[in-house]
């Protein structure tokens, strides 16, 4: 595989005296599927926020496509091709589904026909029929798909899917997984942050596990599932006996 397209080097994030993350080093290669797991409060969302620029690390560096982006604003990273979806969907209410996708496309100059591109992406996630509907009126599954579609509109190189399947039924999870798999097959690297273990195990090439802000495991899905430390973090000491 090629060099990493996304690189986190010794990143730390503290809020006052509380260290929420790190020091942590992680890399992602082009086209890779990386699963990120860990219990609540383990620092997963803080890591994502440091990657996307919503938070500035207290220490360490973030590199994307060979460029240091540690201090770069989130909108600049997004334009470079670092897209994310949110744990709790954040649709642009008061706008149609189509307009939600035009927002990122407005800021990209290499898209000849933004409306056609938006419709193409909506079709690819199964939301074409809802293009003219108000985004606030979508179902939970549709909101999840809209989050993904908005992230995909600008042809990202990396997609960070933050609990994109939370609250969905098994059939709906399959639906979202199929979208992510198709996307990955088109060359986009995907970081999946997820609590639904069968989904993350099925999807990921590699998984990292965080606990209290630190990386405690990094490996293939099977190795992670059998890692005693990961089992202890998830199921407690007794589960190992």
């Amino acid at each position: 595989m090629s060099d990493p397209i996304l690189l986190v080097e010794n990143v730390e994030k503290s809020f006052g005296a509380l260290r929420a993350l790190g020091p942590i080093s992680v890399s992602l290669k082009a086209g890779e599927r990386l699963g990120v797991i860990g219990p609540n409060g383990s620092g997963k969302t803080t890591l994502i926020n440091c990657l996307t620029g919503t938070l500035t690390p207290s220490a360490g560096e973030v590199w994307f496509l060979g460029r240091k982006v540690t201090d770069l604003a989130p909108h600049r990273r997004a334009r470079m091709g670092l897209a994310r979806s949110f744990q709790i969907p954040k649709p642009f209410t008061g706008m149609s589904v189509l307009e939600n996708l035009l927002v990122p496309l407005d800021h990209l100059h290499d898209v000849a026909d933004p409306r056609a591109r938006a419709m193409e992406v909506l079709a690819s996630v199964g939301l074409a029929g809802r293009a003219g509907h108000e985004a606030g009126g979508l179902t939970q599954l549709e909101l999840r798909k809209l989050e993904l579609a908005r992230a995909l509109a600008g042809r990202p190189k990396v997609l960070i899917a933050d609990e994109a399947m939370a609250g969905l039924s098994d059939r709906e999870i399959d639906d979202v997984l199929a979208i992510l798999e198709r996307l990955n097959e088109s060359g986009v690297a995907v970081i999946m942050i997820e609590h639904i273990m069968h989904a993350v195990m099925r999807f990921s090439h590699r998984i990292i596990c965080l606990e209290t802000g630190r990386l405690i495991a990094d490996g293939l899905p099977d190795a992670i599932a059998n890692d005693p430390l990961v089992q202890k973090v998830y199921f407690g000491e007794q589960a190992r006996h």
Binding site: A78, R84, F92, V103, P104, D106, H107
Partner: peptide
């Protein structure tokens, strides 16, 4: 125009707008 779309996006969610490439500030 795209300016108004950007305004509506940041009014709905500043964080999501910024992560969608909108220069909110």
């Amino acid at each position: 125009s795209w300016v108004g779309r950007g305004f509506r996006a940041l009014r709905a969610s500043e964080e999501a707008a910024e992560c969608a490439g909108v220069p909110t500030f």
